[in-house]
Simulated assay, not measured.
Amino acid sequence: MKADGPRRPYARSFRRGMRLGGMSAVFAAVGMLVAGHATADTFVPLPDGHEVAPEATIRRTAEHAVVSPSMAANGAGRVVWVSGTVTADVVQTPSVERPGPYSTPENWPGTNNSSTHGTSQVSTGYIVGCQVSIGDSAISAGLSGNVSTNGAGLSGSAGLKIGPGEVEFVRVGFKDILRPGVYSLGYRDFEIEIQGCGGYAQARAYTVVEIIGEHYSKTTLYGAPFSIG
Rank of each mutant, 00 (worst) to 15 (best):
A201L: 05
D176P: 03
A203S: 15
T207D: 11
N150K: 04
I194Q: 07
K161S: 15
G181L: 05
L154D: 10
G156Y: 00
F190Y: 14
R179K: 15
I192N: 02
F169M: 14
G199I: 03
A203F: 02
F174W: 09
S144Y: 07
A158R: 04
R179W: 00
S148Y: 03
V182A: 11
G173E: 07
S157P: 00
G142C: 11
N146F: 07
I177L: 07
I212T: 01
S148F: 02
G153F: 07
V182I: 07
R179A: 15
S144P: 04
V147E: 09
T207F: 08
G163N: 10
V182M: 12
K175T: 07
F174Q: 15
G156V: 03
Q195P: 00
D189Q: 05
T149F: 08
I162F: 05
F169P: 00
D189T: 00
G156I: 06
V182C: 04
V208C: 07
A158E: 12
Y200E: 14
S155K: 15
P164Y: 11
P180V: 03
R171C: 06
A203Y: 00
E166Q: 15
S157D: 11
V208M: 13
F169V: 15
K175F: 05
E210T: 00
E193L: 02
Y200G: 13
S157Q: 13
D189K: 03
G153K: 04
S155M: 13
S148D: 12
T149E: 13
G196N: 07
F174G: 12
S184N: 09
E168P: 00
N146R: 10
R204P: 01
L185S: 06
N146A: 13
A203Q: 11
R171G: 09
G165E: 13
E193A: 12
T207E: 11
Y206H: 06
L143N: 04
G186F: 05
V172P: 01
L160H: 01
D176N: 15
R204I: 04
G145Q: 07
C197Q: 04
V182K: 12
G145S: 11
K161D: 15
G196E: 13
S157T: 06
E210G: 01
G198I: 08
V208G: 01
V170S: 07
F174C: 15
I211Y: 01
V182S: 12
F174V: 09
A205M: 13
